[in-house]
Design a protein around this nucleic acid. Sequence first.
DNA 1: TTCCTGACAGGTG
DNA 2: CCACCTGCCAGGA
Length: 117
Amino acid sequence: MAALSADSPAVARILSAIRDVPRGSVAGYGHIARRAGLPGRARMVARLLAGNDDPTLPWHRILRSDGSIAFPPGSKGHREQARRLREEGVKVVKGRVRMPRGEDDLDAALWGPGQGG
DNA sequence: TTCCTGACAGGTG
DNA sequence: CCACCTGCCAGGA
């Protein structure tokens, strides 16, 4: 069972937002939270992923606001996420990914390919 | 109920 | 661009 109440609609929105991120693209915790209708609840997204047990969830596409991997460098999670991202064609440099910045209102543009993937 | 911790975000130097 | 500090939300002891 999940650490958070899966019955909660908010959780469903978050999961949906995460699944909405296309392959080869990435998104920030805050972006997911905002898209889920929970502005300022970026940490809630993190908690959700931390207790997530669904392997089909594209958790590796979720990065920090600055585009860096949230896991500590060298950790299993860090390497795994970096590996998955590269597998999707995402360029990972020093545990960091070039995040699309600028218009946050137009998430549509944000959802588009950033590194050309 | 109070204190501490965490897959965070934003601003300053 | 990188390092450091402050603010915020939610959960667990």
